[in-house]
Design a protein around this nucleic acid. Sequence first.
DNA 1: CGTCCACGGGAATACGCGGCGT
DNA 2: ACGCCGCGTATTCCCGTGGACG
Length: 418
Amino acid sequence: MGMFQRDQQIFADAAPLDDSYEPEDIRERDDELEKYQRALQPVIDNRPTSNIFLYGKTGTGKTVATKFMLSHLEADAATYDDVDLSTVWVSCENLSSSYQVAVALVNEIRESQNKEKISTTGYSQQRVFDILYDELDALGGTVILVLDEIDNIGHSDDILYGLPRARSNGYVDEVRPVIIGISNDFKFRENLSPKVKDTLAEKEILFPPYDANQLRSILKPRAEKSFHDGVLADEVVPLCSAFAAQDTGSARQAIRLLREAGELAQANDCESVSEDEVRDAQEELEKNQLYEGMQELTTQGHAVLCALAYHQSLEEVPIRSSDLYERYTKICERLDADSVSERRVRDHLSDMNMLGLISVYEHNEGLSAGRYHEYELDVPLTAVLDVLLSTNRFKDLADIIESTADDNNLLQSDLSDY
DNA sequence: CGTCCACGGGAATACGCGGCGT
DNA sequence: ACGCCGCGTATTCCCGTGGACG
């Protein structure tokens, strides 16, 4: 027997548990789909179509619903000779400005035509918009531009101003652009600049978080397809649903939980998946998220984290930012690295707070001490040290902190509940 | 009601990059 | 080939502010 053997006790076909899986029917979103269909109907009727914006947290079915609607729309449009429809899909996940979105749109169109892509930097914004208008005009007909995770562009929303008015401004005349914006942020519309808000005619569809019952109904068919019969204990799907509903109401989270539970069972050579695996999976996923959050910090972020870990190991927490800053500068000196301003460190701390890595306690003691914050780690010290040890720069320091913490017997207690 | 102090928003600046015009 | 320009990212600089205290 080789080292790797195929183990098919648990999974029959794990594809339905993959992020990229597209189910043939969308469950628990009847109202939203009906609205969606009505909003897209004008495309088939060759009437002007308004822009459509979908709002809802991650994992509430926005993207899947859009893929579903568009594939039907494309298929149906093809049966009418006089309907000329193309769609362009851009994920704005890593795009933080209108400029980058415009470049991405151009390149997406060019890629589908095997034309050469343009550079992501160097042009003026207007220039990129002009190129985009040319490409759109060349496509002609109705072009649906899907901007997934559009809230990433923040306040840089020029593209939402330019595209809808391209036709009336005479930049294009062969094409009717329709924007489908998908936003994780309910407040995205409020934060748009006034001129965009006024001109962006749009239909809004809200995707609320799923409750536990809905998640169960979404999970069930996927579970049946991906696991062998009788492998899943009855309580597994309801428990995954309950965990995810409690936390975020995200179908993606529920599905990941189910897959992770299955993978754990498989790794442990279990014949079935039970409640225990789901609980372990939940812990495992949470832990991974924190690790990833820490690993993706910049060197400066790591230095700040390191300073906090240092004080944590001495049990000098929670600690005021001014004291933490002193430690931080010493650490930078020692590493022969540049240090940044106190203001900037506050930004890093606030980022880390967002990621759930640290806790912040606000104080206001008026005349005696004014306003200040105190910080402490919200993740086990061992986890922080693991990450720091794995980076070349902080390896030595992390070693020292580890031994300090060891002297204070801080690590044992951490390990037991970690 | 004035005072205190870090917080945090926002403008200004530094720097690097790649395309463009000459 | 060269310097310039507009862009993104990270940072610094400036300053108004919350709100308990006295």
